[in-house]
Amino acid sequence: MAKTVVQEFTKGLWAEIPPFRIVLGLCPTLAVTKSVENGIGMGIALTFVLVCSNVVISLLRNIIPKQVRIACFIVVIATFVTVVELVMQAYTYPLFLKLGIFIPLIVVNCILLGRAEAFAAKNGVISSFADGLGIGIGFTLSLTALSIIREVLGSGTFYNIPVFGPSFKPFSFMIQAPGAFVCLGLMLCVMNMLGKK
């Protein structure tokens, strides 16, 4: 491998940070970033699934037959997603209620299948682990950034703590669905402007 493990890790934090650079995984990005709590929770859940599935798929990459690899990937991913779902129900039930359908929907998240197909199925365990962790943390960071903007403007709170005085009238458009699209679009635009320099 030309790249070192550290490079595999750090590329997920800037050069290939989802969803800003590789525009994948938009469905949870748009839907759950109403509050910082949701954003971080979703990011951690996805990071866990991504790391586990990357490691397992990388371990099994020589056993999985080529013809049915997608099916095998999905089985692995679905297993870990269900584990996450059950664990979240057992220990962080309010968060589970807020994230709702988007936890099971991690299964069809393009980032997971993309990393499995494009990376874990071709690389060793350690670099797959680093790749999964990097992309996962990058995704968590993006979700956190987006949800900070949306929560602070849309509800006037940060992690459920009011940040403005009581006279602040929340810009509730930001926490509605169209606000998510506008906000994500503006962030993509800023990222591109920063990336050009």
Binding site: I63, I64, P65, V68, A71, C72, V75, V76, A78, T79, T82, V83, L86
Partner: peptide
Amino acid sequence: VVIAVFSAVSGGLL
């Protein structure tokens, strides 16, 4: 066989 084993293992884990 591979798929069956995969499913069985994941089913057991779940």
